[in-house]
């Protein structure tokens, strides 16, 4: 390990790789994708300007940025609603997925009895259940939440079940040998040991919760105040307000990226000290 102070100090001899040399890789890794995105945006604007394409067919990035700024009053509440539904669904999916996984692995019989039900819930396309949920749920918001939850829940559950069942047998023997209770076994061995699996489930679940929140809102077709970005997408389409449609789309992408970054960061924070997936190879 190089101490932080050494890492940041200027190079001592010109023969050693300099600051730029050592950080070139990292710098390039950021600059290249940013450069590509900027180039594509410029190309997009150029095509629009050169060909004179009207805004209602394909708006340029400038028009989209303009819409993002002008329609912020409409888009922001919608973004907030979608974010809330996604986050609440993810939180519920985490609690439900982990809880049910713990319940399922308690005995072979419990697993045999209940696992098929969770699989049926997963493989049934969510859009197909949405109308039913919309009928039974007290409000549209609750219906959206249920849809997003059902989709995000399964990857967390299946990863968690896999993790809880993949505990090192020698460690299980060791805990047995020391007379560990069921509760201690779960708390000190099975849960920490399945943390990498949980993190995989979290990352997949985070992405899926957003997708499901959007799809469910399409299906619900809810309107008016309190509706999310998906409704704003549809509304923009009906009104041929294509710049706003793009703006809403960009907000959805940004939300997706932020969720991905947060879940990846949580995974890194909890695993980087010990798990292979978060370690740099040192050869």
């Amino acid at each position: 390990m190089v101490p932080a102070s050494l890492e940041n100090s200027p190079p001592l001899a010109p023969s050693k790789p300099g600051f730029f040399g050592r950080n070139r890789d990292r710098l390039l890794r950021t600059l290249i994708p940013v450069g590509v995105v900027i180039s594509l945006i410029l190309l997009w604007q150029a095509i629009i300007t050169v060909n004179g394409i009207p805004q209602y067919i394909l708006p340029g990035p400038l028009a989209v940025a303009n819409s993002l700024y002008n329609d912020w009053g409409t888009l922001w509440p919608a973004l907030w609603v979608t974010t809330q539904i996604t986050m609440q669904a993810l939180a519920l999916a985490l609690i439900g997925g982990v809880g049910i996984a713990i319940f399922l692995v308690q005995s072979k019989w419990i697993e045999t009895a209940f696992y098929p039900i969770t699989v049926i819930l997963q493989v049934t396309p969510i859009v197909a259940i949405a109308p039913l949920i919309l009928i039974y749920a007290p409000t549209t918001q609750v219906a959206l939440l249920i849809c997003a939850f059902l989709v995000a829940f399964f990857p967390i559950l299946s990863n968690m079940v896999q993790g809880l069942k993949s505990v090192d047998h020698n460690l299980l023997n060791l805990f047995d040998l020391y007379g560990a209770s069921r509760w201690q076994m779960l708390l000190y061995l099975k849960l920490p040991s399945s943390l990498p699996y949980f993190m995989t489930g979290l990352r997949i679940g985070g992405g899926l919760a957003l997708i499901a929140a959007v799809v469910a809102e399409f299906a619900a077709g809810s309107a008016g105040a309190g509706s999310g970005l998906a409704f704003r997408l549809l509304e923009s389409q009906y009104r041929l307000n294509i710049p706003r449609l793009f703006a809403a789309l960009i907000l959805l992408s940004v939300l997706g990226v932020v969720i991905f970054m947060i879940t990846s960061f949580i995974a890194w924070i909890s695993l980087h000290r010990w798990h292979e997936s978060s370690l740099k190879r040192e050869n």
């Binding site: 060791l174 000190y188 010990w274």
Partner: peptide, 23 residues
Amino acid sequence: FQEPTLMPWQTVFGNVYLPLKLR
């Protein structure tokens, strides 16, 4: 055991502490 059978998420201290923690 034949393998060290350590908990990778625990430090050396945490691993040695385990039998006492369970008590």
